[in-house]
Design a protein around this nucleic acid. Sequence first.
RNA 1: GCCCCCAUCGUCCAGCGGCCUAGGACGCCGGCCUUUCACGCCGGUAACACGGGUUCGAAUCCCGUUGGGGGUGCCA
Length: 468
Amino acid sequence: MSSPPRVRFAPAPTGFLHVGSARSALFNWLHARHHGGTFVLRIEDTNTELVQPEFYDAITGPLQWLGLDIDEGPYYQSQRLQLYADAIARLLASGDAYFCDCTRVAIDARLAELAGRAGYDGFCRDRQVADGPDVVVRFRVPDSGSTVIDDIIRGHVSFAHAELEDFVIRRSNDTPVFLVANAVDDADMAITHVIRGEDLLNTTPKVQLLWTALGYGEPPRYAHLPLLVGDDRKKLSKRKQAVALADFQRAGYLPEAMANYLSLLGWGPPDDIEIRPMTEIIELFTLEAVHKAPAFFDMKKLDHVNATYIRALPVDDFIERCEPWLTNEAPWPADSYVPEIFAELAPAIQEKAHTLADVPAFVDWLFLADPPIDDDSWRKAMVEGRAAPEMIDGVLARLDHVEWTADAMYALVSEVGEANGLKLGKAQAPIRVAVAGRTVGLPLFESIVLLPRGEVRRRLVAARTRLD
RNA sequence: GCCCCCAUCGUCCAGCGGCCUAGGACGCCGGCCUUUCACGCCGGUAACACGGGUUCGAAUCCCGUUGGGGGUGCCA
């Protein structure tokens, strides 16, 4: 354990990279970085029937976005098939594996009579079946004894061989099952630590058995991470929305916030400071400190972490990161967007936005010819609020003579409010709704003077008209 | 069914035999600040699943129960 660790993240390209997978990747990466080790990416694509080419990029893209730089690979198992075939041949030769031509239906029929058993009954163990089409290779699990996994997170986990079936290691289409590829590659790539989700814990003794039969010597250390669960306390599933890492990117989460939050699921820094730079997390992270219980993926907390990161961004950086939401994704026509106006307001927006996707809603009224007026806001400020018509009339009366600055507007609205017995908080509401369309938003006077005076007048008049 | 794992506030983490009348964070509820909403600050709510042991002493160790999850495929 004195030499630097070599870890691997080994996803199958069968879908978009899931947050749970991303968390596994992160923990592997953290372990490697903490110990100055190597982070290897290996694509587990032995099952050609399930693999979809478009998902290869769906792995490396999000990893890169998250900031998990890869030291080695990607290795593709589909390009290493000969290695696995050789290993299987060796197992066949040594008698640790055998051919089987049973169909699932036949197996199930036999199993139905031996109540309580599942999997495979060992029917072909000594039938000397010859290789051929529709023939698989199975591993001969020892009848007695057990395999013990010394898991860094879970301690010793024991599996009785009697509970393990003679599992398939080569499919009838001649492709190896991931268990073989796992053992072969982990040995070949000199992997020292296998860090992955707890859902793989049950497959570990099988890989271990293969490892031993292949004579690989000292196996890697295992660390099975607690699963990430959703509202229903069940493993985060692809069925639900927003479990792909790319969805979070699209929803306006910063990669560093995402990585920071993910590091907090199943682990916590010893000093309780949760939001901090990745360099510090690397320094503090250890697998030994990862705990065992499943972790709920809490969007509320993610939002909080994200908002904290957004606020901490240098304003120029913030503006740059908002770019996609201000252009391609923006709700306004491209030619009406004025970068200078946005830049002026950016610091205030940083204070309020929880995600980058929230950003356009703060400024859309500045770039839209006719911003929509929110019904609830209208009701609250114009109908239920006191003196809305008086406020608008009062402001309108002096609008053309006021200096077009935030301070002057502040004074104007304050005075008109006072004349109507309203404090500023109440007084500004009708003006805000008339001009910006909502009761909530940026500091009003600072932002309203960014609109031409004539446009503000037009909106006030329109609101006043609607009020009658 | 069988195998494996897990069990501290609603949620995420602290706690690894005495410092715990259980700590922090998110959320939630009050209050302050205030140009709305946020931010910030102050305060509050709220947990050791249960039952047996072991021990002078248990959230911490052991056993059981209950509950949850995962796996039981020619997916990974």
